[in-house]
Design a binder for these strands. Structure first.
Lengths: 142, 142
DNA sequence: TCTACAACTTCTAGCAGCTGTAGGTTCAAG
DNA sequence: CTTGAACCTACAGCTGCTAGAAGTTGTAGA
């Protein structure tokens, strides 16, 4: 039986985060000691590892909820899990494209800065005048 | 003189966001009509455009605050603005590297999914077992 | 067995950067 | 003068945690 601290350490999670996952129903309510402290078994360890790994791959908590549900029903079609992963892949590729455009623009800004006074700063100038950009970056980006 | 709605439309911002920027001191308190409605001039339009453009390039509101301050003092050295932009470029490049690793992993997951039952789903399997990953993705990523 | 103290407990608030809603007021066109 | 879109304030909510306060439990060493 693992304490919440041990479970957290084993999965690279903060204790508060484990409790948060329990609160939002992503982790089950675990058994407790007489004094009221949480104790976990291997099933919970596996589940939390799954969650953390999916988070590392950028899945949202909602997506993870779906994936966990699918994982809990081995007879279901794999298609749904596949769709979720594909959706995530699309998102990642979309963000990649955006970031690449941003990198280009930032590089250009930085490159053109001659190091004088802010009155002539290319960085500020580009920010002031959108028309100087080579790419469109309409969406909020990060 | 522009209403807040017109200002918002011209800069691709939501009305609430403009008020939010005012609240956090990123935008100045504008003049008001007798009835209490905000009215903006060209200076505010320029400033908001600057802010939005910087947001699109992924700068944080704090970074933007600094950039605005530099922009307001044309005699200052350009070095600070340059440093902020370089910092931002570094962040973008870091995120790019992460996302590229994620894309690789997601592609592999999706590619290997044969479309059967969830019991044999590669997507879920990979999530369950981190050791199947080719890359390390320790940080939270997206 | 006692003591010390790390680790646990709940509760609440805060972070970024907005976004949405409720309930009311103002402005401008017809 | 009426209508109704757009404005006003104030505050709650979003994601995914994270930090702090104030108090309790578990366990190792003396």
């Amino acid at each position: 039986m693992l304490t919440i601290g041990t479970l957290a350490k084993k999965t690279g999670t903060k204790v508060q985060t484990v409790r948060y996952y329990e609160q939002i129903g992503l982790m089950p309510e675990p058994g407790r000691t007489e004094g009221g402290q949480r104790r976990y078994g291997d099933a919970e360890l596996d589940r939390l590892s799954f969650v953390r790994h999916a988070r590392q791959l950028g899945f949202s908590l909602d997506a993870i909820r779906e994936l966990l549900d699918l994982s809990d029903h081995p007879g279901k079609s794999c298609a749904e899990a596949d769709a979720i992963a594909r959706r995530q892949l699309k998102q990642v590729e979309h963000r990649l494209a955006r970031l690449e455009a941003l990198r280009t623009e930032l590089k250009r800004m930085v490159h053109e800065c001659s190091g004088g006074q802010t009155a002539d700063c290319r960085v500020l100038e580009v920010l002031r005048d959108h028309s100087e950009c080579l790419t469109n970056h309409e969406e909020i980006g990060g």
